[in-house]
Amino acid sequence: MNKTIFGTACLLGMLTIILGAFGAHGLEKLIAANAITTFETGVRYQMYHVFLLFILGLLPSLPNSIKRLVFYLIVIGIVLFSFSLYFLALNDLMAFDFRKIGFLTPIGGTLQIIAWGILGYAFFKGKSNTFQDE
């Protein structure tokens, strides 16, 4: 499971850098400033959750069932949240009206919130000795 988590984090991290550079250098003359801000929000939250995936892969005493659940919630959350923001930001450049999929953004965010909650609960209520009070 850890290799899958790390591999996914690496791929999503590389994609985050590519998308961030594209947003900063390729979009500035193509879309409005508020659309660039929307795009940057997607990039920022994607990177936050890439870091969470790296941390998740480093937690040795977390049960694999919890790791797997958190992993899937984060990855699906990234796709729904960040990628819907990318498409919404690029809406004026596309033939399809991506505002029709705008409802996916809060669903993705909710999945990410749930993942953080499950991870926190697993630490505070589980038998994990990763963080021991001194």
Rank of each mutant, 00 (worst) to 15 (best):
G126T: 12
L69F: 04
G77S: 09
G77D: 06
A95H: 04
S84G: 03
F131Y: 11
I17P: 05
Q132E: 10
I107E: 07
V75Y: 07
G102A: 15
T41Y: 07
L69W: 07
Q132K: 12
N129M: 09
I55S: 11
I66H: 05
A95K: 03
F6T: 09
K67Q: 11
T4C: 01
F71W: 08
N2K: 14
N34C: 01
G13V: 12
A95L: 02
I66M: 10
D133F: 11
T105C: 07
I55N: 03
I66Q: 06
T105K: 01
G126K: 10
G126E: 05
Y72K: 09
T105H: 01
P60A: 10
L52H: 05
I66A: 11
A122H: 01
I18F: 15
C10T: 14
G77K: 09
Q46I: 12
Y86L: 04
F81W: 06
S65D: 09
L93F: 00
L30P: 00
I76L: 15
V70K: 02
F39L: 06
A33V: 13
I113W: 08
N64E: 15
K100P: 00
T37Q: 13
A32L: 14
R99A: 08
A35I: 08
R68M: 11
K3E: 09
R44S: 13
H25P: 03
G42A: 10
T16H: 13
G42V: 06
R99I: 01
F39T: 04
P63I: 04
F71M: 08
G108Y: 08
T16G: 15
I66V: 15
L53V: 05
G23C: 01
L27K: 03
Q112G: 02
L56N: 08
G117K: 01
S65I: 14
G26K: 02
I107P: 00
G20Y: 10
G126N: 08
T130K: 03
I18S: 12
N64R: 07
F81Q: 11
M94W: 02
L88E: 01
I5K: 09
C10F: 15
F51W: 12
L93A: 02
Q132S: 10
L111K: 00
L12R: 05
K125T: 13
F22M: 00
I107R: 04
F123Y: 12
K3C: 00
K127N: 15
S84L: 04
G126A: 04
I5Y: 10
S84K: 01
T110E: 01
T105Q: 08
L12Q: 12
G108D: 07
I101L: 13
G126W: 08
A115Q: 01
I114H: 04
L15V: 14
L62N: 08
T110K: 00
A95D: 04
L104K: 06
N34F: 06
I118L: 12
G42Y: 02
M1K: 12
Q132F: 00
G117M: 11
I78W: 08
K125D: 07
L27C: 06
N91L: 00
L80V: 01
A32T: 07
